[in-house]
Design a protein around this nucleic acid. Structure first.
Lengths: 183, 183
DNA sequence: GATTCTATGGTTAGGGA
DNA sequence: GTCCCTAACCATAGAAT
């Protein structure tokens, strides 16, 4: 910069603002960007300093989502959602047996059809696959949420326990299901 | 306080610390408490100032959950879980064709094996099914995340577009897949 | 454990680019 | 939209309560 041209920069130091919706569209936008960044940084510092798991999700007024998570947003959300769904140690013995089956490694560790070889894909394939995975997430999540809403709506008074055998069958089907060999 | 007794408080002003796990158990505990509070305050200010919807979930090292949400944690989580798919308008034409297929109602609205009749279930069955759905979410999410991490790691320079046909095949398989009639 | 205290280090509002 | 800039405001480390 030309020394002669150095104009004294007018410094508008930080001004105190009260915490209410910022009216001016542009100011609000800039503030959102800055403070979102600051919030994520604080969250990151908290997780590092204190070994905490943190997830932050923000929707701007325009509906755009932003998120931060350590170790990942989904990890924290799952932990949270599984915590919230209530104590699972009050289940009947019959159900517990079934849950052990679900938690068995067989189901989760079996290579599924979505375990494809990524390195063989081109750029567009990768992006498409990414999109596809997100769609699958959405499908399962929506089915899960819809079902769970219904579950919550159903009064939990039905004492029939024996019917749980259905799930043993269902699990068997699942185990045999996603075993398609891609290409 | 007795004026005679007013001892000058030795002030230890804030010291710069580097961002790494605080070793000393007690200090970490105090820091967690303070910074968690600060984080929630920042989140609150962001939502008020900018009209944003915010959810923050924190697990301490001891496993205790804390959360903040505006208008509520559940509201934001629900919105986020239904909203995961990102912008699709920057993709190449070849990819876009494929995405249209993905987005086609056929795939998503076809009744899947998890669309079971809830009202026929007993109490334990319902709880078990709920657990099962959460497991399925985890499986798909984890597969998705692992794959997407790899996708991000792969340099997006491969110009081969034609390979995307693989996904047309994959989608066909998917459409025919989950068509098991429960019981 | 949580809260209070003080002096710093850190954050950020309003401009400008 | 993002980045820099400054100065005033704010959060917080360490110690004590």
């Amino acid at each position: 910069m030309n020394p002669v041209e150095v104009k004294k920069r007018i410094c508008n130091g930080r001004k105190k603002i009260d915490i209410k919706l910022i009216e001016k569209e542009e100011n609000r936008q800039v503030c959102f960007s800055k403070r979102r960044k600051g919030l994520f940084k604080k969250a990151s510092e908290l997780s590092t300093l204190c070994g905490a798991e943190v997830a932050v999700i923000v929707f701007s007024l325009t509906g755009k989502p932003y998120c931060f998570g350590h170790p990942s947003v989904d990890h924290v959300l799952h932990r949270f959602l599984n915590n919230v769904s209530g104590p699972s140690d009050t289940l009947s013995p019959a159900t517990t047996n079934c849950l052990e089956l679900i938690n068995d490694d067989q189901l989760v560790q079996k290579p599924f059809w979505w375990d494809v070889e990524l390195h063989s894909m081109g750029d567009d394939e990768l992006r498409l696959y990414e999109k596809f995975l997100l769609e699958q997430q959405t499908v399962v999540t929506e089915a899960s949420e819809a079902a769970m809403e219904q579950i919550d709506a159903v009064p939990h008074t039905n004492p029939e326990v024996g019917e749980a055998d259905y799930f043993l069958w269902l699990l068997q089907e699942i185990k045999d299901l996603p075993d398609i060999d891609p290409i």
